[in-house]
Amino acid sequence: MSFLGQYIPLLDTVLLAVGFAFSQQVVLRAGVFSVATAGFAAIGSYCAAILVTRLEWHPLFAMAAACLFGALTGFLLAQPLARLRGIYQAIATLAFVQIVIAVTLFAEPITGGGLGINNIPKSVGTGTLAVAVLVTAYILHSVKQSGVGRAFDAIHQDETVAAVLGISIRKYQTLAFLISGCIAGAFGGLQALNTYSIAPTTFSFAFVIMVLGYIVVGGRRSVLGPVVGVAVLTLLPELSRFMAEWRPILTGATMILISTYLPLGLADTLIARLRMRRLSHAQPEGGHSVRTPS
């Protein structure tokens, strides 16, 4: 038991990371180049922490508020950003993250400034986190099966074609921002209630990079993508002392290599390969192969 016990904090970190990665994946999947997940997470986190410590709300209500706040922020942020082009979306959302961090530093009476908020009572354990990850995964899986997911895919692959087919880019990108905000707000809240203390540095540039890294490594389309990404980038370095020491460099190098040679990410590439293999097996000998149709 004690053997497992020492891995509980690591497991919690991994589950939270998967949650944030889901939030990042939703927007990227819809062709939105947002890095706002860090900002949403900070908002959810501070929201839950302030409500629990200062107003002594029940953690459940605080969590609901964190989700709601995250979703609302996502929705509002989408209004001006849903029609901007990729790079502009990236810069604007980065500015948003910086504003959130600057405000948490500045509004010291409420947020505790640079020291952050400490002594948050721990009310969220590994079980709750696991349930939250499963629920999120289920929702993302449903999205994938639905018209919403098809619209996301179309926008991601070719915005002009999507629009010509009647897909409102504004509507679906707003939806993506909203879902992303809700998920990040929720996991931000969970993090606050799981780790005793939060500070602005938790959600800084490094957070933005890590979350983006999970998706790049794992993949943008499948629900498995973020899980694989988190596994590769957080679990592998834990396996050996040597790798832990060089972890940031490994992260950077992995990001370059995977973007260059497996642009779909590990999980998505694997899924695509499996599908190709199934297809070629399904074709009878005399039938038409996929790549050279008659």
Binding site: F33, L212, V216, P248, T251, G252, A253, M255, I256, S259
Partner: peptide, 11 residues
């Protein structure tokens, strides 16, 4: 490109 240059930055 954003991802790879970010990777280079991290390294």
């Amino acid at each position: 490109a954003l991802v790879t240059t970010l990777g280079a930055d991290i390294v």
